[in-house]
Design a protein around this nucleic acid. Structure first.
Length: 496
RNA sequence: GAUCCGGUAGCUCAGCUGGUAGAGCAGUGGCCUUUUAAGCCAUUGGCCGUGAGUUCGAGUCUCACCCGGAUCACCA
C-alpha cells in the first residue's frame, strides 16, 4: 500500500468512493466556473441590506453539523467564514444526498437568502448547492469556541512543509503575508514617488561582492563558467549610478551560503537603493520616513515585538558607534590599540578569535554589549573604516572613520548605509586589502571586482546607498519573531 | 558545528519505576429538520522517527542516525 499510512489511505478511499457516487449521480465534482456575488464577511457587515436577499458565495467547507434531514455547514472564502443551512425539504432529496457526500475541505458554491438563525448567527438558507471541487485528502480539524482554539495546527515543521494547510487553518498567516505585500508596495510607491527607477540586475554573477558573505556557487554549461548567486546588488547598482541613473533601486532575492536561524534564511529579500548627490544623512532621513510610512500602512507604529514595545512614531535616535562603545566599556576605544581592545574584550567576556582584527573586535563588542540594548529605533553612525570597504571616508577628517550608519530596532539590524566611496584609487586599495584578508583565509572578504573599479574610474558622483532587509522589516511590522513566519516557503532540510 | 528538548492513529495529545498500544477530534454505520468544539449509540484505524543493542520481554533503558524546535557558535 505504498508509503501511505493505512488509516489515511482508508479515509482517502472513502472520499474517492463518495466522489464516484457523485459522478454516478450526474454531478460534476470539478466544474470549471462559479460566480459568487458576495463574500462572507461583507454579508455579515451588510446584513441590514442583505437580509432576505439571495446571494451566491463560494468557498471551502470547514465544518459540518448534520442533524438528519437538515444540516449546518460553514464555508471559508477569501474574507472569512459564513454558515449555511441546508434542509432536505428545501433543496430536495437528490441535492441533500449530494450534500451528505461532502466532506470538510470540499469547495462548494451556495445560493440562498441571507437570514439569522435562532441562535443569532447570520447564515445562508441554501436554495442551490453546487459542488466546486471534491477533496480526497483530509484536512487537520481545528475547532474553536469563544476564541479558544482546540487542536490547533501548530507543529512548526508541518506548518512550514505544508504551507497550504497552514494558510487554511491559521488565519494570522495569511494576514502576515497580506501585510508583507502591503509593506513592499509601500516601499515601491515611496521610492517611485521620489523618482527612483526600479531595475533588475543579474542574480547569476561571474563575481560576487557588495557584502561580506559566502556565496552559493553554480555553473553555466555552455559558457563552462562558474557563476555565483548574488549576495548583494550593490556593485551593479553603482554601475547604474555611474551610468547616469541618479536614483535607482532594486527589490531582490539575495543568497548567502550561511547558517540558518530565526533571523537568517539562505535566500532573502533585500532592498537596495542608490541616490546620486546625496549622503548618508539624507539616506537616514529617507529610511526613517520609509519605515514610518510602511508602519502606518500596516498599523504598526507601535508594535509589540517579542515583548518589546517598539515605537516607530518618534524620531529615531542617532548615535556614533564610539559613543556607544565607550559607554558600554568605560574606555575610549577610538584611541585604543588592537591589544588594548583585545584585553577589553577579554575583560567583558566577549569571545574573539586570536586572528580577529580591529574591526572584527569592535563588531564583536557591538553585537555583544551594545546592539541587544538598542530596542527603540537607533541609527548607529560613523563606523570604523576597517569593516567598511565600500564606504567613503568621513568628512570630519578622521582617517579611521567612514560615513556609514546601521539601523537597529529591537536589538536587530534593519538597514546598512553609507556615503558611497567614489574615489577609484581609494576603492582599489580597499578591495585589494580585502583580497589580502581573503588570502589569509577570511572566506567572507570580498574579491576584487576589476570591472567595477574600472567603471568607477570613469567617474561616479557622490552617492548615498542603503540596504534594507525586507524580511526583517516585515517581521518587525507584523510582530513576528521568526523569519520563517514571513517567508511563505522557508528553507528546510529535505524530508527524508 | 555544540548542548538541551521533542518525534506515539489523518490532527491534537496521554502512556508511571520495562509486562499484549490509549483518549478527544476526524473517518465509517445508525438516530436526529435551527446547530455552532452540535449531541447520542456503535465502530475502523498504529513499522510508537529509523537502525542496532541490553532483556524472557522495549513506546519506555543504551548507542548511532534522520527530522524539527530552543540556546549557543558561525554569520549582516
Amino acid at each position: 500500500m505504498s508509503d501511505e499510512q493505512k488509516s489515511l489511505q482508508q479515509i482517502i478511499d472513502f472520499r474517492i468512493e463518495k466522489l464516484n457516487k457523485l459522478k454516478e449521480d450526474g454531478v460534476n465534482p470539478y466544474p470549471t466556473k462559479y460566480e459568487p456575488t458576495h463574500f462572507s464577511e461583507s454579508i455579515k457587515s451588510n446584513y441590514n441590506e442583505l437580509e432576505g436577499k439571495t446571494v451566491k458565495v463560494a468557498g471551502r467547507i470547514m465544518a459540518i453539523r448534520k442533524m438528519g434531514k437538515a444540516s449546518f455547514a460553514q464555508i471559508m472564502d477569501s474574507e472569512g467564514r459564513i454558515q449555511f443551512f441546508i434542509k432536505r425539504d428545501s433543496v430536495g432529496e437528490a441535492v441533500y444526498s449530494h450534500f451528505k457526500l461532502l466532506d470538510i475541505g470540499d469547495f462548494v458554491g451556495v445560493e440562498g437568502e441571507v437570514f439569522t438563525t435562532k441562535t443569532g448567527e447570520i447564515s445562508i438558507r441554501t436554495a442551490a448547492l453546487t459542488v466546486l471541487a471534491k477533496s480526497i485528502r483530509p484536512l487537520p480539524i481545528v475547532k474553536e469556541k469563544d476564541g479558544e482554539v482546540f487542536d490547533a495546527f501548530s507543529d512548526k515543521e508541518q506548518r512550514y512543509r505544508n504551507r497550504h494547510l497552514d494558510l487554511i487553518l491559521n488565519p494570522e498567516v495569511k494576514e502576515t503575508f497580506i501585510k508583507r505585500a502591503s509593506i513592499i508596495k509601500t516601499v515601491r510607491n515611496y521610492l517611485d514617488d521620489l523618482g527612483f527607477l526600479e531595475v533588475e540586475t543579474p542574480v547569476l554573477q561571474p563575481l560576487y561582492g557588495g557584502a561580506n558573505a559566502r556565496p552559493f556557487t553554480t555553473h553555466h554549461n555552455t559558457l563552462d563558467q562558474t557563476l555565483y548567486l548574488r549576495i548583494a546588488d550593490e556593485l551593479y547598482l553603482k554601475r547604474l549610478i555611474i551610468g547616469g541613473i541618479d536614483r535607482v533601486y532594486e527589490l531582490s532575492k539575495d543568497f548567502r551560503n550561511e547558517g540558518m536561524d530565526r533571523s537568517h534564511n539562505p535566500e532573502f529579500t533585500m532592498l537596495e537603493f542608490y541616490w546620486a548627490y546625496a549622503d548618508y544623512e539624507d539616506c537616514m532621513n529617507l529610511v526613517e520616513e520609509l519605515f514610518r510610512e510602511a508602519a502606518i500602512k500596516v498599523d504598526a507604529l507601535q508594535v509589540d515585538w517579542g515583548g518589546m514595545d517598539i515605537d516607530l512614531s518618534k524620531p529615531f535616535a542617532r548615535k556614533p558607534i564610539f559613543e556607544l562603545l565607550n559607554e558600554a566599556t568605560g574606555q575610549d576605544l577610538s584611541k585604543s590599540s588592537d591589544d588594548e581592545i583585545r584585553s577589553i574584550c577579554k575583560e567583558k567576556g566577549v569571545d574573539v578569535s586570536d586572528s580577529a582584527n580591529y574591526g572584527q573586535m569592535l563588531d564583536e563588542l557591538m553585537s555583544k554589549l551594545v546592539e541587544p540594548k538598542l530596542i527603540q529605533p537607533t541609527f548607529v553612525v560613523d563606523y570604523p573604516k576597517a569593516t567598511s570597504p565600500l564606504a567613503k571616508a568621513h568628512r570630519n577628517g578622521d582617517p579611521n572613520l567612514v560615513e556609514r550608519f546601521e539601523l537597529f530596532i529591537g536589538g536587530a539590524e534593519f538597514a546598512n548605509s553609507f556615503s558611497e566611496l567614489n574615489d577609484p584609487i581609494d576603492q582599489r586599495e580597499r578591495l585589494e586589502a580585502q583580497a589580502v584578508l581573503r588570502e589569509k583565509g577570511d572566506d567572507e572578504a570580498q574579491p576584487v571586482d576589476e570591472s567595477f573599479i574600472q567603471a568607477m574610474e570613469c567617474g561616479m558622483p557622490p552617492t548615498g546607498g542603503v540596504g534594507i532587509g525586507i524580511d526583517r522589516m516585515t517581521m518587525l511590522l507584523t510582530g513576528n519573531r521568526w523569519i520563517k513566519d514571513v517567508i511563505l516557503f522557508p528553507a528546510l532540510r529535505p524530508e527524508k
